[in-house]
Design a protein around this nucleic acid. Structure first.
Lengths: 206, 206
DNA sequence: GAAAAACCCTACTGATTGGTAAGTTTTTGT
DNA sequence: ACAAAAACTTACCAATCAGTAGGGTTTTTC
């Protein structure tokens, strides 16, 4: 009669798969998707190519899975973070502190350091849907902040682009052994976005 | 006896070469360096592969030349722009207005949308040297602004990272047929970086 | 007008790499 | 203890694409 695969075997398989994905994410970030060969990953992992293909469908699936994990982590972290804010500004801040923490992980960096068109249109469409939701949520939170008086009147679209730019670019320069951790970086950026660089505020700016 | 190549022939050759580089830059930005084949470019240009290789050494040289042109344009534009400022803040603003204008061209976008390690170490080192000079100049200008009182006391490194992040990321979303041109985008970003999003300024922030 | 140079082409080569066939070995479940 | 499943391997294939050999055609210079 049929044998059941135990939970322990499934867990071990998933751990092995995650190990492969982590190695892929790190190497994609360091060398680029196309400059990374499956043989590169095999060397890092101490496995053969058919073994890698035992766990993932193809090279594109490696990238898709890395990106999918990052997107899931991002949404989960942001869902927790945003609900703590008392007004638009605090929610915005909480969202981006969470954002910085995810986008400095290997999976998170993948979202920034690789290209959507290295994946199939189906795959990149699925990921982009999640991305679009986050974009529109950020704009809504900015609008809430304008309404509740915690954010000055501004163009939410432009602010959103500037914020995402600053935070996305962290993936390019952040190092785990750097001077600041992601939370400190996020706090500093938010101080800047909160008060700007001007020494004095013109009377009409509120 | 030796024949001289006339200036007209040299000009025409250089124009043809620039045409090839422009097509390369646009396609690298749209599809990615590795997803772009020489055959793709031939189709766009209406030329054969050996003809492309008549004008450029190899595929990597295409990317290097695109990046080199962008870097030269950047330094030229910034050299002109920064000298007009009366204080640190104005110079900073002028630098980034110029920066936005170059980084939204096809060559400029190449600097952001491709990877340094798609080029040889020699090539990317040469380009990085120029990049590093710009980075340190921006920090110096921020420090000048703090000294002359046009920029509030802040961490120049952090501000520099945030500014470059916002401006570099423009390459990812800017479209020529979009609502705003690069100067307008830069002005809006600088309004944000100048006054921040806070409605009021705490007394100790200057 | 002729030779040199510029500019162009088709057909091809060779290297690389994603992915698999056809197994073997190890582990697990009964 | 044995059979099934999981996990793994070597050797190989096929497709792709960067780049070139060996020219031909057009333009330019003298």
């Amino acid at each position: 009669m049929a044998r059941k695969t135990s939970k322990a075997v499934l867990v071990r398989r998933e751990e092995k798969r995650l190990e492969i994905l982590r190695a892929a994410a790190r190497t994609f970030n360091e060398k680029g998707f196309h400059n990374t060969t499956i043989d590169d990953l095999c060397e890092i992992l101490g496995l053969s190519k058919p073994t890698v293909y035992y766990y993932v469908k193809d090279k594109e699936a490696l990238l898709f899975e890395c990106s999918r994990i990052a997107t899931a982590d991002l949404h989960s972290a942001i869902r927790k973070a945003r609900d703590d804010g008392r007004n638009g500004w605090e929610r915005l801040r909480n969202i981006f502190v969470a954002y910085a923490q995810i986008m400095t992980t290997d999976f998170g960096k993948c979202l920034i350091l690789t290209r959507a068109n290295d994946m199939s249109p189906e795959s990149s469409t699925r990921l982009w849907d999640g991305r679009r939701r986050l974009n529109s949520e950020v704009r809504e939170v900015i609008e809430q902040g304008i309404e509740d008086g915690s954010i000055r009147k501004c163009d939410p679209k432009s602010v959103s682009f500037a914020l995402f730019g600053s935070f996305n670019w962290i993936a390019h320069w952040y190092r785990e052994d750097g001077e600041e951790d992601p939370r400190e970086i996020a706090e500093k950026f938010f101080d800047l976005f909160q008060f700007g660089l001007a020494v004095d505020r013109p009377a009409n700016s509120s």
